[in-house]
Simulated scan of single mutants.
Amino acid sequence: MLGTILLLLALAKPTCPSPAGAGNRRAEALKRLLEVFGMEDPPPPPAHFKQPPQYMVDLFNTVANADGVTKNPDILEGNTVRSFLDKTHSEKMRFLFILSSVAKNEKILTAELHLFRLWPRVTDRPQRHHFCQVTIYQVLQGQVDAPGAKKLLAARLVPLQGSGWEVFAITEAVRDWTEDEHSNQGLLVTVQGVDGSPLDPPPLQFASSMDHHDSKKPMLVLFTDDGRRGASLPMADFPDVQPQAPVVPAEMPVPRLSGLRSTRSLDRLQPCQKHPLSVDFEEIGWSGWIISPRGYNAYHCKGSCPFPLGENMRPTNHATVQSIINALKLSEGVSSPCCVPDKLYSINLLYFDDDENVVLKQYDDMVAGSCGCH
């Protein structure tokens, strides 16, 4: 994976004039890099400047460090979080979210409706209760007052005082919509008294998609898993991706065997260790749609795995045996072990998709945590 990225970056930004074929190679390299990120084409940058929902920014900062490297792999149940803004542009308590960007192979884990509760209206009437009942319905037919036109999804008491976000589980409805997009008739929210009695006007209001700032607009947050899984290891000891100290070969006597390189020659070879490998999304041309990070350090492994392999070279048993066979020339065509990543960690991208929804996606096996002889 990391070797592929290194090659792609080299092709993506030539350092000197190249023949016409280099343009095709660059396009092919960027196409392959998009495949690493699970995309066919790069999403177009938003037509106008858009501020991503603060919830998505906060979630990214909770899950990842500044380089996008995962702090804790157990925070997210799946590997994708999508946010959708309401498309009704209405003051009424009815909401519609277009989910066409959700792939058919994504497993729906959890769906949440986020509504921003506004400060209560000033009224001269005394308040008999300090709470009201908020109910969320899945709309099944256009005329919501008709029998069987809606299905109950969630209901709870919400305080009348104060303001802030209220979150309601609507997973059942979203699963229906992703299985049959034509069934998506949206959601209906009602506000009633604690005893279920109607309130006119309701003392509690939520921000609408039409008259309020983007940071308070109704939002659907969807947690999914697209089935991609790598071999990333737990990274409790790897929160900041610190550079790995150079590995020095173990001080062991080198046998005087014919065909072996001299000790002086081995000393001149750099031992297997981790080196920086910068991936800059602006240089690649992706900064218009990627929100965070601006780039990251993937690291790569380089160096020799000379005989004899000490424990500080982190060799596998197979690599140790291969090293011995190579040193003793016991079999033709057996090379010395290779310096490769033996720990790989995931990164997270926060970006705008084709529909200008904000997506947080986690990608496994993107950063070399340490190197060893394999």
Rank of each mutant, 00 (worst) to 15 (best):
T171W: 10
K329T: 10
E40R: 13
D214P: 12
V247N: 09
W286F: 09
G142R: 13
E166C: 11
L266Y: 15
G285S: 11
Q362R: 15
T15M: 14
V189N: 03
Q205A: 11
S287I: 08
L152Y: 02
S287Q: 15
E311N: 10
A10G: 15
V254W: 04
C338L: 13
A22K: 11
V221S: 06
Q273K: 07
P306L: 08
L330N: 00
D364N: 11
E356K: 12
G259A: 11
C373N: 07
V139L: 14
D364V: 00
V69Q: 13
A173C: 05
Q133V: 08
R156E: 03
S265V: 13
R125Q: 14
L30Q: 02
I75W: 04
Q273R: 14
V144C: 06
M235Q: 14
K361S: 12
M93W: 06
I324A: 12
S370L: 04
D180L: 04
R229D: 05
R264W: 11
L9S: 06
L350N: 05
P45F: 08
V189T: 06
K107M: 10
T316L: 09
G227A: 03
R229N: 06
G230I: 00
K217C: 05
A207W: 03
L269A: 13
C16F: 14
K329P: 00
D225I: 03
S278Q: 14
Q244L: 10
T88I: 08
L349I: 04
I284V: 14
L257F: 13
D86W: 07
S265D: 15
H275L: 12
M313R: 09
P45D: 07
N312R: 14
W165K: 03
P198H: 04
G68E: 01
P202T: 13
G259N: 12
L260S: 11
S215G: 01
R121F: 11
K71E: 01
P218I: 01
H129P: 00
K31Q: 14
E106C: 03
I98L: 10
V134Q: 04
I98P: 00
G303A: 08
A298R: 01
L266G: 07
P14S: 01
S346M: 08
Q51L: 12
A27P: 01
L349N: 05
C305R: 03
H129K: 10
M252I: 15
G295F: 05
A64V: 04
T190C: 01
K274Y: 00
F206E: 02
G142W: 06
K92M: 11
E282F: 07
F84P: 03
L59S: 01
A22Y: 12
P46D: 07
P246F: 09
P255F: 05
Y363I: 06
D200F: 10
L8E: 13
D58R: 14
Q133M: 15
Q244P: 00
N105V: 11
T15C: 12
E77S: 10
E40D: 12
H374L: 10
D180A: 08
T135N: 03
P306S: 10
S208R: 05
E311H: 09
K217Y: 01
V221D: 02
S258M: 13
A111Y: 02
